[in-house]
């Protein structure tokens, strides 16, 4: 199996897990970095390489089948992918990576790089910007944030 074979699947499952569209995720510039990072992190201890293989096998079943219904996909993820007991807790690690740039849950996590912190989606979710980066400009805090999607 080629290293990058599962990248499109990683993109799809990341979107389902985070609630951000694939386009938004690719827009951070972090997709390949995170894919490679997760591939590298799964090893001897949990989550293991085998966890990762089964994770992508299940993802294939969900995304490459005939059923494209979003609710059905969500139910599949809730049942098989999201639980912390599934695949060595991979799903919540991936969500945390996208939201905060951290590898590791809660206070056990730390940024995998400066850029990962800066691209954390938690700030977008909260209609703001990462503390210390992407500054919105003088006086911008005086008015509600401008959200072009609204």
């Amino acid at each position: 199996m080629e290293e990058k074979d599962n990248l499109p699947l990683f993109s799809k499952i990341s979107a389902s897990l985070t609630g951000f569209s694939e386009m938004e995720l690719w827009g951070t510039g972090m997709m390949e970095t995170y894919y490679n990072y997760v591939m590298g992190k799964c090893g001897e201890s949990s989550p293991t390489k085998l966890d990762l293989e089964y994770f992508f096998e299940k993802a294939k079943e969900i995304y490459l089948g005939d059923n494209n219904d979003e609710n059905w996909i969500d139910t599949q993820i809730q049942t098989w992918i999201f639980p912390p007991t599934s695949y060595g807790g991979l799903a919540q690690l991936i969500i945390t990576l996208w939201y905060t740039g951290n590898w590791g849950l809660g206070f056990n996590g730390s940024p995998i790089s400066a850029q990962a912190y800066v691209q954390g989606l938690i700030w977008n979710a909260g209609e703001t910007h990462p503390s210390g980066a992407k500054q919105p400009g003088f006086g911008s805090w005086n008015i509600p944030p401008i959200n072009i999607k609204k």
Binding site: L17, A91, I95, N102, L105
Partner: peptide, 26 residues
């Protein structure tokens, strides 16, 4: 907001509902 993410995932949220919850609380 990092702890809010942990709390939301612990209560079973992921995907769009997670994003909505994070928006609500932050």
């Amino acid at each position: 907001p990092g702890s809010d993410l942990t709390n939301a995932m612990n209560s079973g949220l992921f995907g769009k509902k997670l994003r909505e919850e994070m928006n609500y609380i932050i």
